[in-house]
């Protein structure tokens, strides 16, 4: 009988990512309802030292797969190890982050474990002993409650949505030998090109400053970048701006770009096409700055300023400087 709530915690360069604490906290909550333990699995190279940290967020047991092969995330190696661990321990629930890495890993695990998964969930609960996940569909134009029937019941959790809750547990570290079959490793990372901006990635950002057609051209983004740097924010763009070639495609927020849910989304010169709103309407707070008072973005905004963004944004930057 499958038992226990498992998570795969995500670390990079020897430090846990915040989303790992979010899923640990969420797992703790489910485990408490089920009267079960939370186990975490963490993979990496030379990361044994950090494993116990997860105990702080309610993890009872941490399985550590420490191997040079895990230094960087690769689908093949990680899937092999996690599949083996899950099959050996047979947990009832398996949670991962819906981050770039987590999405890749969790989806493949659905295949290797022949189960089902609710991806990119925004809420989880237990009903009749079963995991019920709430997840947006159609880029947030509808929500669905999903019941996962397979074993384990898998869910990936949207970053920035689940609260980080501290609840001290043992965090007992258990070494896990993945016994990797090297012949099965068919992919390798040949290069890592770090982004020059050093800014936080859109899907992970707590604050996003985003610009649309109203920016008038690539130069306009300089004032957004200045504000973003001050707030530790990511810079996003609407499809119009990306299609015009003002910003790279990786910056696009919207249904055909990235779906984001930061605490604060500042939309500058974005009229608010449905396809853009779909990508950011789950943000906690939305600020709209637009000259056109009838722009649809104002209907979604918590705070709106009807004015020329080229006047407002520099003033905002100045104001923020005062308080930070």
């Amino acid at each position: 009988m499958a038992k226990g709530v498992w998570i795969v915690a995500e670390q990079r360069d020897g430090a846990f990512r915040k989303v790992s604490f979010e899923i640990a906290s969420a797992a703790r909550k489910l485990a408490d309802e089920l009267g079960d333990e939370v186990s975490a699995m963490v993979l990496g190279s030379g990361i044994e030292g950090i494993a116990a940290e997860l105990g702080k967020y309610g993890v009872d047991k941490v399985y550590v797969a420490d191997d040079p092969a895990f230094e960087k995330y690769t689908t093949d190696a990680y899937v092999q190890a996690v599949t083996k661990a899950v099959k050996e321990n047979d947990p009832a629930i398996l949670l991962l982050a819906a981050s770039v890495e987590g999405k890749d890993l969790s989806s493949r695990l659905v295949g290797s474990l022949a189960t089902g998964m609710a991806s990119d969930c925004t809420d989880l609960r237990i009903e009749g002993g079963k995991l019920i996940a709430l997840r947006p569909m159609y880029a947030g134009k509808a929500f669905a409650e999903v019941e996962v029937d397979g074993s384990p019941q898998m869910a990936s959790l949207r970053p920035n949505v689940f609260p980080v809750v501290e609840s001290a547990k043992a965090g007992e570290v258990v070494k896990f030998d993945p016994a990797l079959d090297a012949a099965a490793l068919k992919t390798k990372i040949v290069d890592v090109q770090k982004d020059a901006s050093g800014r936080v990635e859109l899907t992970e950002a707590m604050v996003i400053v985003s610009g649309g057609r109203g920016m008038k051209g690539p130069e306009g983004y300089q004032i957004l970048e200045a504000l973003a740097d001050l707030l530790g924010a990511a810079v996003g763009a609407s499809r119009a701006a990306v299609d015009a070639g003002w910003r790279p495609q990786t910056d696009q927020v919207g249904q055909t770009g990235k779906v984001v849910s930061p605490n604060l989304y500042v939309a500058c010169g974005i009229s608010g096409a449905i396809q853009h709103l779909a990508g950011m309407s789950s943000s906690k707070y939305i600020v709209a700055i637009n000259k056109d008072e009838e722009a649809p973005i104002f209907a979604k905004a918590d705070y709106g300023i009807v004015d020329d963004l080229f006047k407002i944004v520099p003033e905002l930057t100045a104001e923020v400087k005062k308080i930070l």
């Binding site: 929500f143 669905a144 104002f298």
Partner: peptide, 26 residues
């Protein structure tokens, strides 16, 4: 199916926002 949609619902309505007034941009 191993993952079944049991219920769909429209997204929660957002409360209406406020327009920040003032004379000058600052």
């Amino acid at each position: 199916a191993k993952a079944k949609i049991v219920k769909m619902m429209p997204p929660p309505e957002r409360a209406p926002g406020k327009i920040v007034g003032g004379e000058e941009a600052a």
